[in-house]
């Protein structure tokens, strides 16, 4: 390869967009040619410099708030940010100040509220996952109303064995199960039905420190998310069914899990 060619391919090489043969030819050339190698290093350095996170512009809080549906009554109490016309330097200065304060306060907040914050993100994720699952063809990996079919299906697919219970008698027939991912780990997702509503149950082993936690509830645009930790397992239940019915379901599920564990 001659230097002119190398210069043509330098950027694609830098971006890892060359095929194997060209990439190898380029590497060989750079080994033998000090000039091209120096140019390459310089661009590498420039690339590295441009990757500094401070260069990335993040959406202002006011904009994000405007586009985020309100979720909980607590949010509704705060006045909704009206759409501000573009020439509002003072408002922007205030917003910038607020963002700055937020930046300063955020680490502290996380330090204090780590559990709560992580939990909210998890609820978000669980709702998103449930929504994705409702899209055609996504709902189930194994379709069965029999827990003795569903439970073994997870063997070898997860590093734990999920509890699968039969709640058909209580009006919540099992529909099937699938593999899913929440908070960066693989979890078991079981799908139950209540009339025409579907209920996703996510479960996975809890971190050793929090082996049990009380039931907590949150609402996200029409979906109810219930979350608890019990017997070393974390559970998240998501559905658009009436919250009272979901509580009933959860109660039955916990009783079934407690009492005898219908494996």
């Amino acid at each position: 390869m001659i230097c002119a060619d190398a210069r043509q391919l330098l950027h694609a090489y830098l971006d890892d967009e060359l095929d194997v043969a060209q990439s190898a030819a380029m590497a060989t050339h750079l080994q033998g040619c000090a000039t091209c190698a120096a140019g390459f290093r310089e661009h590498q350095r420039l690339r590295h410099a441009l990757a500094q996170p401070d260069l990335y512009r993040h959406a202002p809080a006011a904009l994000r708030e405007r586009w985020t549906p309100r979720r909980e009554p607590a949010d509704a109490v705060a006045p909704a940010a009206p759409y501000r016309s573009r020439r509002g330097p003072i408002v922007w200065a205030l917003a910038a100040g607020f963002a700055g304060a937020l930046l300063l306060a955020t680490p502290l907040f996380y330090a204090l509220q780590q559990h709560g914050a992580a939990g909210d993100m998890l609820a978000d994720e669980a709702v998103s996952s449930h929504l994705r699952a409702l899209q055609p063809q996504h709902l189930m990996d194994v379709v069965s109303t029999d827990q003795h079919t569903v439970k073994p299906w997870f063997d070898g697919k997860l590093d734990f064995s999920p509890r699968v219970v039969d709640l058909a008698g209580a009006g919540f027939p099992l529909v099937g199960g699938r593999l899913d991912a929440l908070g960066g780990r693989s979890v078991a997702a079981l799908v139950y039905r209540r009339h025409l509503h579907l209920i996703s149950v996510y479960e996975w082993p809890a971190a050793a420190l929090a082996a049990s936690a009380a039931l907590s509830e949150s609402q996200q645009h029409g979906y109810t998310v219930l979350r608890w930790t019990e017997g070393g397992m974390q559970y998240v239940v998501v559905s658009d069914v009436d919250p009272a019915a979901l509580h009933e379901f959860t109660q039955k599920l916990r009783q079934a899990s407690d009492g005898g564990d219908l494996r």
Binding site: R57, A59, L63, P69, V127, L131
Partner: peptide
């Protein structure tokens, strides 16, 4: 809900 789940995560990218 779907818009929020699919599009909103890219608000920073858009900005």
């Amino acid at each position: 809900a779907r818009f929020e789940a699919v599009v909103l995560p890219w608000l920073d990218a858009a900005w």
